[in-house]
Design a protein around this nucleic acid. Structure first.
Lengths: 230, 230
DNA sequence: GCAATACTATGACAATTATCAGTTTTGAAA
DNA sequence: TTTCAAAACTGATAATTGTCATAGTATTGC
């Protein structure tokens, strides 16, 4: 089986491409371009005009926006199965966020034409994309509430739990996705030093342990309590 | 002309209902129920199962979520032309946010069936809803960045500018939408006392002036500079 | 292997923001 | 109009978070 064909791609099951019919999928598959992106390399930049979307086959990308104070706020981490750039293509706007790989990635670039024509012709596909976006919107609303109502300590605890739930742990029990301290700070919206300080505090309290920049959760229960505000 | 009919409702031009065809619109209009909601009254509560959406004809509603610390974070202000509850109906989930009127409102309740059947049949409508949701998602992402990277002072300055741009001013130059200090605090995600203190500071600096709980912008330029971080 | 460089870590201090405890003002109901 | 409860406001103080300076630790490229 040719795994480079969208028709056979497992990743498709996770995203809205599963609502495409055979011929639509064939067209997408014929027009797509597979790319590998190394950790640290950008996929696209805020303000750029996207002429397609990126379907993630492997690896993780941070999607962030530069705020006027010069700091990068990470709004979302996109992983296997997720489609990046969809929003901009649908709204016919320039990209609102930048996408940079935080681990080595394999992505498929899909030219926007195959997406937009399917959107106009296949209501099932459109509805599926809509459902996904409705879900993203709920998540974004929840992030707003967390950002504005929780302390930095709570947000960092939550971030570790999020990383465990979404990316799992390696064989040694460390979080499978390793982010730099700066990236962690940019996820929770705080200064890098503050993030480091709180991570050290978590270590002292036995909630986590670390090895280099890798982090492992030692006491998930306590971490969860802390995140909830107890 | 019967203005109680969706077909003739001006508000429809602002939202995705404009992509409905005549018969779909007729069905919606036949099944809808007009309601008036007094300031302070809820439209729906977080966690509730919605069996329809609310189309705003007049007035403004705050859409908020209770955070574990007991504070209400206002995520969005919905006004004339906006459709509330759409996200929950599309995702077939319970409401993620509560909606409470912040001024007297006139809304139309539209049972979800007329929405969902149109979503399945009319791709134009689905695409239109999708575009609106894409726009909402961008706005939500921007709010995340503001919330996590700007100071309370900046966020309050921005809130006043937002209120002026979106709801305008009355004949005396005061912001047409008057929010309580507590609501302002809940929009920017801070303690009520902090919000009041900063509002007082703005007054002393001549950026705004007030009369009771009403606020007027005196120096928009300076307020904008402040919001941008200068 | 070694220098250059980026990242992690910690201390000292300043700025911001929250909390608590009160007083004053406002506006709606009697 | 008076009365009363809610909302707005202020001060004092504590807690949180940011900034700057500096030192240690990995990592990379030569």
């Amino acid at each position: 089986m040719d795994h480079s064909r969208c028709e056979n791609c497992i990743v498709r099951q996770f995203n809205s491409l599963r609502a495409m019919n055979k011929e639509e999928l064939k067209k997408v598959s014929d027009s797509k371009v597979m790319k590998t992106v190394k950790k640290g390399e950008p996929l696209f930049e805020e303000g750029e005009r996207l002429n397609g979307v990126y379907c993630v086959r492997n690896g993780v990308s941070k999607m962030s926006k530069l705020s006027p104070n010069g700091k990068d706020q990470i709004v979302k981490l996109a992983t296997k199965g997720e489609v990046m750039g969809q929003r901009s293509v649908i709204a016919e706007e320039h990209a609102n966020l930048s996408a940079v790989a935080v681990s080595d990635m394999e992505v498929c670039f899909i030219p926007k034409e195959s997406i937009t024509t399917t959107l106009q012709k296949n209501p099932n596909f459109t509805l599926e994309v809509l459902r996904h976006m409705a879900h993203d919107l709920k998540e974004a609303d929840d992030v707003i509430v967390n950002m504005s109502q929780k302390t930095v300590k709570q947000r960092i605890a939550e971030a570790f739990l999020y990383l465990k739930n979404n990316f799992g742990e390696d064989t040694d029990g460390f979080l499978a996705l390793t982010l730099s301290r700066e990236d962690i700070a940019n996820v929770v919206g705080t200064a890098t030093e503050s993030a480091i300080r709180i991570i050290s505090e978590f270590k002292k309290k036995g909630l986590i342990h670390t090895s280099g920049k890798r982090v492992a959760i030692s006491d998930e229960r306590k971490l969860r309590d802390l995140a909830e505000g107890f």
